[in-house]
Design a protein around this nucleic acid. Structure first.
Lengths: 132, 132
DNA sequence: ATAAGTGCAAAACATTTGCAGGCTT
DNA sequence: AAGCCTGCAAATGTTTTGCACTTAT
């Protein structure tokens, strides 16, 4: 990661590393505020602005995507591959569903539409086991 | 529509009718602000708050859905059926793609996952013909 | 030394809320 | 007449921006 940042001409700061490592390993699509609260444990003086700036940087580099939801909440997802976001309509928990089958079906879809997509998003809303 | 509102126990106001008719006939997924600007042509004193309240009402009734996008923009979509939102990454224009094939593929997907979804969203990001 | 990054605070937006007055029923 | 709805304005919440200071290179 340190190497990667240097190659990109980006400075390696401890805050940046903490933010990058945190979000890139997360599977639960946290919000900026949640990321901020978490990083603050380690770096109490970090600001929300810094978190946002680094998240935008990660998005530009193409390592994460932003997922906007109803009610204005934006969540950050480090999985850039094709997958289904399984969103619980009750507790809001998001888990990814990612199989070869999903990919096959998606390929069938875009060959049907006949265009070359730059990106994709598939959400499925349901009630998760914990909430049922 | 007037009948429909009365059945639901909702009052029929000219502003409400204008908002409902406008968004329900729109295919381009406008934002609240865009809807407000349009309705304002006919009702110059209408407020953004009223627009929001009525949009939320429509959502509760189940006639429209909210689609959150990056950067906090929320768009309103009156098509509750399964379809693909084709989003131009350059100009932001959204068009729907809706065929039997989409439905078949989706059914194959949910039978693969093995759950009963309450809702869905499929976005495909690309560069539209106008922008190419 | 220089340029980029951080932290802070203010600003900019989008959306929500509360309430007085007006309109539908 | 009663209650819902509107319009306004203030409040809220999130994200962005500007700038002085700090840190990595």
């Amino acid at each position: 990661m340190i190497e990667f940042l240097r190659e990109k001409g980006l400075k390696v700061t401890s805050q940046r590393l903490a933010i990058f490592n945190f979000i890139l390993s997360r599977k639960d699509h946290p919000t900026a505020e949640q990321i901020y609260q978490k990083i603050r444990g380690e770096y109490p003086t970090i600001s929300l602005g810094t978190v946002y700036k680094n998240l935008h940087l990660l998005k530009e580099i193409g390592l994460i995507q932003e997922l906007g939801f109803d009610e204005g909440s934006v969540r950050y997802d480090p999985d850039m591959d094709l997958h289904v976001n399984m969103v619980c309509t009750n507790c809001g928990k998001i888990t990814d569903y990612k199989t070869d089958k999903v990919e096959k079906l998606w390929n069938a879809l875009i060959s049907d539409i006949g265009i070359k997509p730059k990106g994709h998003r598939i959400d499925l809303y349901y009630e998760c086991d914990d909430c049922k």
